[in-house]
């Protein structure tokens, strides 16, 4: 009965639409993140959006998704900057800098969350959903925002595809060609933040980074070409988004994010084994 409802309710259609587009966008952007070796930085950024959402709620005392997203963007960017600052100005290496930023920002988010629930109105149910995502709780305006945002990200990354490619692969050469590499890096960062911020409602701050990490990694087992990899990664992301959201709305109280991530993990596992370029089966066959 619920399956039937899912496909007929207007909201449900938006849920599926949004999750497919979000999955696709994160898969494409994730390919660039992977090549820049920033997979875990994106994870720190995602965790750091939580205090932003809480702060905005504490200041304005309203549940407004656009405001939440602005707050999330600010603290997400702040976290990225903190990592750079720590690495640049101290003897601490990147991995520890990421770990510090991730855990302290997230801890701040938890503290603010408990502060809100105990000291303010007490109505924190909406904020809680940001941790693991809850697709079922989204209203159609949220979903429309996810869908439109994802679409914009997909279009932008298609437009700038070759510029991103060269800026990541050989930034010095790109500069020599007269390309504004710093500008393209900033655009790419903005797109990463964009995916994270619009994704946290559905997938949650704790696991949204997996959507940036896992699909492109799976795609690498099928192709060596960046263009094809980004495309394939987008498709893997979209499939994970679709199936994950679908399953999570079936079960009572199943958080959406972890289910989507598990779908992506299964795709990764299948790619690891059967991938046509580097898959294990292929390797075994080659050595025999």
């Amino acid at each position: 009965m619920e399956i039937f409802e899912l496909f007929t309710k207007a909201n449900a259609q938006w849920v599926l639409f949004g999750s497919i587009l979000l999955g696709f966008a994160s898969g494409v952007i994730g390919s660039f993140v992977l090549l820049k070796k920033q997979s875990l930085i994106s994870d720190a950024m995602a965790h750091a959006t939580l205090p932003g959402v809480c702060l905005v709620y504490m200041i304005f005392q309203v549940k407004s998704i656009p405001l939440f997203l602005i707050g999330a963007t600010i603290t997400g960017l702040l976290a990225t900057y903190s990592i750079q600052f720590i690495v640049k100005h101290s003897r601490i290496k990147t991995d520890a800098a990421i770990g510090i930023t991730l855990s302290v920002f997230f801890a701040l988010g938890i503290v603010l969350l408990t502060f809100i629930s105990k000291n303010l109105s007490g109505n924190q149910s909406g904020l809680d959903d940001f941790i693991f995502g809850q697709a079922a709780a989204l209203v159609s305006s949220d979903l429309q925002m996810i869908a439109v945002g994802s679409l914009v990200i997909i279009i932008l990354s298609t437009l700038f595809f070759k510029e991103f490619k060269i800026s990541i692969f050989d930034p010095l050469y790109a500069k020599g060609l007269g390309l504004p590499v710093t500008f393209f890096n900033a655009v790419l960062l903005a797109l990463v933040v964009g995916v994270v911020v619009i994704g946290i409602q559905m997938v949650g701050v704790v696991l949204i980074a997996a959507l940036l990490i896992t699909p492109p990694l799976a795609a690498r087992y099928w192709t060596e070409q960046l263009g094809l990899m980004a495309m394939l990664s987008g498709i893997f992301g979209a499939i994970s988004g679709l199936i994950g959201t679908f399953i999570s709305t079936l079960g009572e109280g199943l958080p959406t994010g972890p289910v989507i991530v598990l779908c992506a993990s299964v795709i990764f596992l299948l790619s690891l084994i059967f991938g046509s370029k580097k898959g294990l089966v292929k390797k075994v066959v080659a050595t025999v």
Partner: peptide
């Protein structure tokens, strides 16, 4: 690459 390897393993098992 090792950061992506960490990312994929822990998100999968945690999820």
């Amino acid at each position: 690459q090792s950061d992506a390897a960490i990312g994929v393993v822990f998100t999968s098992l945690f999820a």
